[in-house]
């Protein structure tokens, strides 16, 4: 796996936090929804990565 792919993890974390901070005011709600968004996004990226890996074989 190329190093650049790993960049997606902290980048997704940052985007999730900023996006959820702009949706809610309560710190607990921001953190909870950001964690959920992060997990969903990473899962989607991993699924996409695996599909592309399979197709490129």
């Amino acid at each position: 796996m190329q190093l650049a792919v790993v960049y997606a993890i902290p980048l997704t974390a940052g985007i999730s936090l900023v996006y959820c901070a702009s949706r809610f005011e309560m710190p607990e709600k921001i953190v909870r929804s950001a964690v959920l968004m992060f997990v969903k996004t990473i899962a989607a990226l991993v699924a996409l990565y695996l599909i592309l890996l399979y197709l490129s074989r």
Binding site: S22, R23, F24, E25, M26, E28, K29, I30
Partner: peptide, 8 residues
């Protein structure tokens, strides 16, 4: 302010 409300 926040787009979806306070959060509670």
């Amino acid at each position: 302010g926040p787009a979806y409300g306070y959060g509670d």
